[in-house]
Design a binder for these strands. Structure first.
Length: 289
DNA sequence: ACAGGATCCTGGGGGC
DNA sequence: TGCCCCCAGGATCCTG
């Protein structure tokens, strides 16, 4: 579920509640997550203080004193919240970290596509990110490198934007929103884009993510920030989830197709990359190398 | 090598 | 009401 803006919101909410706190105890359920929680980590975490809470792509990273890194991925339905122990834990709460101030950090994930992992130090975490070839943050994208990555592939723009090795943090909502803003059809093939097209796409990604963070992300169904508060950016969506509704720019009905196994929403007028136009763009792309 | 589909899991909503 | 099918903010493995 959560993409970069939602993960960033969770991090910002949790940071003041967690930094400086120590882990008093860890409890875990018996249902396995995408990566199983190792029971040995319960003892490894005991008494460690949280020094920092951050994010890399869609991964939440808590830095603990002495070096260990607790890394959480929310998958589709994950929720990470701080709660009072008196408040009953919701179904599908898999991990509970009791804190030294009497509160609890809870990880809940209905579909169990998420994970929580403890790395022994920063180097071990870096190695894991390198192994999965996690790409750059959208805000740090090198324009030339992004042009190369997009124009080198025959995949659709939708697939490229969802590829975490190209850019980290973009998911289904913001891929559609970025394509809309850049006026590029999500089914367009990367290799058919001009350098200017790719630059426009990169700027659209940054713009959409920045505005979504300011709106605390998009709540479609499960997502809430670190305190369970809903996001607001769903109200600003121009494409995602708006099938059949009028385009905010031209009033044409938004259409939906399946790309890379994901629903992809677009305006057939504003994002009308006709075959002729795509071919022309491809010729230009070849001639400019 | 690369692109695209299947798969993991649970729950909610729509149609009959 | 019940059932069945489809859908869902993701990542990874497998196939052609």
């Amino acid at each position: 579920m959560p993409e970069l803006p939602e993960v960033e919101t969770v991090v910002r909410d949790l940071r003041p509640l967690l930094v400086g706190r120590r882990v008093a105890a860890v409890r875990h359920g018996d249902r396995t997550l995408r990566k199983p929680w190792d029971a040995a980590w319960n003892a490894a975490l005991a008494d460690l203080r949280v020094d920092a809470v951050g994010r890399r792509g869609k991964w939440i990273v808590a830095e603990l004193d002495g070096g260990p890194r607790l890394v959480v991925h929310l998958g589709m339905t994950g929720q990470l919240t701080v709660a009072d122990p008196a408040e009953p834990a919701a179904d599908h709460t898999h991990l509970t970290f009791a804190l030294d101030d009497g509160r609890e950090l809870r990880f809940r994930d209905v579909r169990r596509f998420g994970s929580a992992t403890l790395y022994k130090d920063a180097a071990a975490l870096d190695a894991a990110f390198r192994k999965q070839r996690l790409g750059p943050e959208p805000f740090d994208l090198d324009p030339a490198a992004f042009r190369d990555a997009v124009r080198r592939t025959a995949r659709t723009l939708k697939a490229v934007l969802l590829d975490q090795t190209v850019v980290a943090g973009v998911g289904n909502i913001y891929a559609d929103e970025a394509c809309f803003l850049a006026r590029l059809h999500p089914a367009r093939r990367g290799a058919t884009l001009t350098p200017a097209d790719v630059d426009r796409l990169r700027e659209a990604v940054v713009s959409v993510l920045t505005r979504a963070i300011a709106g605390r992300g998009s709540t479609i169904r499960d997502y809430g920030g670190g305190s369970g508060l809903r996001g607001t950016y769903q109200d600003a969506h121009a494409a995602y989830g708006r099938t059949g509704q009028p385009c905010v720019a031209c009033a044409t009905a938004i259409e939906c197709v399946r790309l890379g196994g994901r629903s992809s929403h677009y305006c057939p007028t504003c994002q009308n990359d006709s075959p002729q136009r795509a071919q022309r763009a491809q010729r230009e792309a070849r001639s400019t190398g």
